[in-house]
């Protein structure tokens, strides 16, 4: 996919989120910055517990009450060129923004539908909250359901329990586009479904993207899926974006040791590499994160400085950014491994 690199729809600046938990403050997202362009698909990868969901809920301000968000701003650019900082929205402005500018397909979509109302009522509810009439909503919904390859009339009449998991997932995708948002956030949309459903959801998503040209933030810990769908990939570790760049850069010329480890641990992408290496240990406790580079305890490249000073985020060619002291060694190894793997 190509996208317009001069047209930023969402500019996230130094965003941090902490949860107030009983054991202390959880730093679930720290100093996150990135730009999302019109028509761009950004994949967020990283192990479970790295803060991907937290970051995205912060972007639509739907975090639980125990969360505190801070930062320099989340600047949204409307279609007419107007700009606004989402963090400064009143509740009413936020409600208007939600879904009509930025919608979300939540993780665990199977329970995302109210079990006691029909799909059509879910559609009307959504439309009504944003001042769109029933007829218009109905028309749009029929068209979208067709685009996600469902039987529109039948699905509109159905209750959630009458639909299979894959069908529900596609209903959610259709409803997420009902108000024609510029941004759709999708949190692990292919995780809980079988491989065929996953295939069809990806195909549908690609096609819709062609036709409607929205931007996507796509969370996945399935790297093969991310590789297929993304323009840009961002690796998150312990609440930070440690590497971000065009998909081929990040996957074939990785500059952060964590991204490289993730790739070596991914069955379908590391095919050809001698061994499948899982990453030792697990992501750190975010109440008391490690000093220096948060990955140093698990990193095969780590040297002394890694545990003392956090590595700065450095920009390399083609807007490829990474924060790693051993970026050259990582890059060299990445190129060797991927050369074997690539066709």
């Amino acid at each position: 996919m190509t996208y317009d690199r001069n047209h930023v729809v969402l500019s996230v600046r130094d965003l941090s989120v902490t949860y107030q938990a009983e054991r202390g403050r959880v730093r679930a997202a720290s100093h996150v910055s990135f730009d999302l362009h019109a028509g761009e698909t950004l994949a967020l990868i990283g192990e479970s517990g790295c803060g991907k969901t937290t970051l995205n809920l912060a972007l639509i301000r739907q975090l639980p009450k125990t969360a505190r968000t801070s930062g320099d701003g989340v600047i949204y650019t409307y279609r007419d060129g107007r700009q606004a900082d989402i963090l400064k929205f009143s509740d009413r402005e936020m409600r208007r923004y939600l879904w009509s500018e930025c919608s979300m397909v939540f993780q665990g979509a199977l329970n995302s539908l109210n079990p006691i109302i029909r799909v059509s009522d879910m559609v009307y509810d959504t439309a009504k909250a944003h001042g769109i009439g029933r007829d218009e909503a109905h028309k749009r919904a029929l068209r979208l359901l067709e685009q996600v390859r469902l039987d529109p009339a039948r699905v509109m009449r159905s209750y959630p329990h009458e639909l299979s998991g894959g069908m529900r997932q596609r209903v959610l995708l259709a409803v997420s586009l009902l108000l024609r948002p510029q941004i759709v956030i999708m949190d692990e949309p292919t995780t809980a479904v079988d491989i065929l459903t996953q295939r069809s959801i990806l195909d549908v998503l690609k096609q819709l993207r062609e036709e409607l040209n929205f931007s996507v933030i796509f969370i996945s810990h399935d790297l093969a899926v991310a590789a297929e769908i993304a323009d840009t990939v961002a690796t998150m570790y312990a609440g930070e974006i440690v590497e971000i760049g065009p998909v081929n850069e990040v996957f074939y010329r990785s500059r952060h040791a964590y991204t490289l480890s993730l790739l070596n641990a991914a069955p379908r992408l590391s095919a050809g590499a001698e061994t499948l290496e899982s990453i030792p240990g697990k992501p750190p406790d975010l109440i008391d994160p490690p000093s220096g580079c948060k990955f140093h305890e698990r990193c095969a490249f780590a040297r002394e400085v890694c545990s003392q000073t956090p590595p700065p985020l450095i920009t390399y060619d083609d807007e490829h950014q990474a924060s790693c002291y051993e970026t050259e060694r990582v890059l060299a190894q990445s190129e060797v491994t991927r050369k074997v793997a690539a066709p």
Partner: peptide, 13 residues
Amino acid sequence: EDYIAVAKARGLS
């Protein structure tokens, strides 16, 4: 329940 979170995210009153 998830569907409550989703309903809020849809901007319902």
